[in-house]
Design a protein around this nucleic acid. Sequence first.
DNA 1: GCTAGCACTCCGCGCGTAAGAGTGCTAGAA
DNA 2: TTCTAGCACTCTTACGCGCGGAGTGCTAGC
Lengths: 350, 350
Amino acid sequence: MKGSPGNEIEGRKAYILATVVYEYIATAEPVGSATLTQKYNLGVSAATVRNELAELETEGYLVQPHTSAGRVPSDSGYRTYVDRLMQPEAMGVDERRRICDELRDASHELDEVIEQATKLLGRLSNNVAFITAPQRDSQLFRHIQLIWISSRSGVAIVVTSLGVAAQSLFETAYDVSADDFTHLSNALNARLANTPLRDISPSLVAQTVAELKLNDDLCAIVMRAFESARSSLQNDVASAGAQNLLDQPEFRDLRKLRSILRIVDEQRTLYDLVADAMTTEGPSVKIGRELALDDLDDLSLVTVPYRSGGGVGMLSILGPRRMPYGRLLALATGTADSLTQRLADINATD
Amino acid sequence: MKGSPGNEIEGRKAYILATVVYEYIATAEPVGSATLTQKYNLGVSAATVRNELAELETEGYLVQPHTSAGRVPSDSGYRTYVDRLMQPEAMGVDERRRICDELRDASHELDEVIEQATKLLGRLSNNVAFITAPQRDSQLFRHIQLIWISSRSGVAIVVTSLGVAAQSLFETAYDVSADDFTHLSNALNARLANTPLRDISPSLVAQTVAELKLNDDLCAIVMRAFESARSSLQNDVASAGAQNLLDQPEFRDLRKLRSILRIVDEQRTLYDLVADAMTTEGPSVKIGRELALDDLDDLSLVTVPYRSGGGVGMLSILGPRRMPYGRLLALATGTADSLTQRLADINATD
DNA sequence: GCTAGCACTCCGCGCGTAAGAGTGCTAGAA
DNA sequence: TTCTAGCACTCTTACGCGCGGAGTGCTAGC
């Protein structure tokens, strides 16, 4: 099925492929030779174009929905287009500024900024947008505070380099004084501040608790607070813009629509989708089958990393395979930059 | 259009109306006289039923999609069914227990419990479920803690009777010591604990700040923390189950689907929908036009209150007007009870 | 007041035809 | 060799048509 790989297409044939992809992205209609010669200045006749199209098809870049229809890009057609043929785009200054402004209006809290950015990206991209929280593997512990509520209960707050993270209510089996909490908090802060969160072990905590001659139970409570800080935003995904997909002709099929809505509802799957994009540096584009989603061959995903406090999060746009890759890459990159910037501003106070 | 109001239908006619609504809810097909006599034991012939149907139509309880079709309930047909005709249902003990169990597995945090309950309700109801956070008008202030991070920044945490509420990062224009924060926190806690949050005024705070001879700026910072506690979960709505609507034949129209997906995405509208249900005690059902949603005449909404720490939140199911009202009311009520219970357990530690 | 019968209406479905878009192929021109 | 023009062919889509079925309202009789 697939044409000879390594046989990179060049010149006119490449231009024709690019044009087919471009036109199909714009119109969602299979592209025929006549359309190409009329709308684009190819300098050759429709018959010549037909020959090229036939070759591109045998090489696996294009497919025909049926015998007497125009051509549609295949996964590898899109892939070639994205990797080699399309013109990179950049965001306009105005648009860039608008994004910055909108993010600046949002609250100071990490998750609210992310939510705001997600909505913005969904709106601007006209597709499904989702953003995963910064990966916290590399986050540093900054501050813990045990807050006394009653003689047998309290709240533990853990602040990390990525912002305020976790709060967890707890109960104790016996009376504890507010002073105990204060002393323990101070001791932990003195000892552990700026330690990578993953390096904080039960024994370190136990040592501190023991030195203050406090009950061992507090050890478990503190560890639970660290644990919840470590995992709190893990797998947390904000998403927006699902309704945009209804405009796309490829989703007139209700089964597809159902599949994709379920995927958006299940954060787990969204998270898995970007998981391997995390291993590579810079923007990543996944096309069709590359996403390995059952029943959803005609989706694509654009993913761009952003940074916050040493952690890396992912900002993604999910849409039909027939998406304007150039524009969306520019949009995602620009938004990721703005988001990184905004989060740096917030964290600058630490 | 509307039939004579006050003229309450009784006996056989009422039974026929109930049966039409019941059957239509089950099948989504207009109901004809033949279906009624065959599937339900009415004891009269189809012709007699036709006469009754014609009357029910002139009285406004039923409508005909077209001349030679069966009948479909109108808003007021559904209304009568829900208010007077349908059999109230209750949840099975098993189902009830399963809900409790699932909620117990969730985390201890208010918002995560709510999210869990929302997903559960969406799954069990096969419709869109959404839950608004408890209204915080009546919430009591419990505890504030200003946490020192650096000499010019900190975090303020406010705990209320509804659970840990708000964290807000702040910066100061000049150096502040950790002790200042501790003293101020203690003074505020001593003075204001268990005050309704809305009664806390800037002057109360200013007084406390002044007594400790601290800088006025702290006053604004503290007030901002209170403000954010007051508004943090306001308008916050968790939703789940949008993809369930795709199964309903009334949403094969893509425009409708689009409208409703947008509504689900915009928390604001969802919040408005339940706003007046908040004024009434107990469960509330809104049918079709009563929701006053443009382009969406055939939706209904079941809303049931739940309680947490003196606040009242709303648990809602949104679906096609042709929804199984009895079952969903039972389901929503049962889930609301479980949720109230669960939140009471969590808060019992205060 | 109920029932049986009947003529009527309207929707939905299947079918066949026609139009249109696009192809591949072949023969000839540059 | 490479391109072009022409042509026959294929396949989809849209449209019109007729038919069957479901359900009604009405009327006459029990």
